[in-house]
């Protein structure tokens, strides 16, 4: 049914296993439900971003029109559809963090790397997400998430320490 290039060779054996594991959890005619998990896995294996070829491969593997995969990939902020730096830095800028100084944190990171939100460092190591909605850690605001790990009660100094530690 899909109009992709009928090529799933881009998917690793592991990615196929993970996708099939998720497909099995849904009714046979609801393969579309596995798109998010499929894209997460594939993105993870591809240095943190998706390519059209990878999305086509997911569509082919799930027997979906490619556009249905593109829709999901472009909707969710956790998917990147262009090459970005390896470490994804997501600073929460919602109301609680904002009141506790998240703007200052963002500005600090921008200055430190010489990039704006939505950009990656030239060495390809860091990517500062454009916008991150509430990650439910308001009690220890401001906070940021780097590659799925939460860092809380941030100050510019602690941010520096954390980023140093990542190198």
């Amino acid at each position: 049914m899909s109009v992709s290039n009928k090529d799933t060779s881009q998917l690793s054996e592991h990615a196929r296993q993970v996708i099939d594991h998720w497909v099995a959890k849904f009714p046979p005619d609801k393969k579309r439900s596995a798109v998010i998990e499929a894209l997460r896995t594939v993105q993870h294996e591809n240095n943190g971003y998706l390519t059209a070829e990878l999305m086509d491969a997911v569509a082919e593997h799930l027997d979906l029109p490619t556009i249905q995969v593109y829709e999901v990939a472009t909707f969710y902020s956790m998917f990147e559809t262009r090459p970005v730096g390896r470490c994804h830095i997501s600073v929460c800028t919602n109301i609680a963090c904002h009141l506790r100084g998240s703007a200052e944190i963002v500005e600090h990171i921008e200055k430190r790397f010489g990039i704006k939100t939505g950009e990656s460092t030239p060495d390809g190591k860091f990517y500062l997400k454009r916008e991150e909605e509430c990650l439910a850690a308001c009690v220890n605001a401001p906070m940021m998430m780097i590659d799925h790990v939460y860092y809380e009660n941030l100050t510019p100094e602690t941010v520096d320490q954390i980023l140093e530690g990542l190198k």
Partner: peptide
């Protein structure tokens, strides 16, 4: 048509 060619992209 039975062939989804258009979609809603972004949000």
């Amino acid at each position: 048509a039975g062939l989804q060619e258009l979609g809603t992209l972004g949000r």
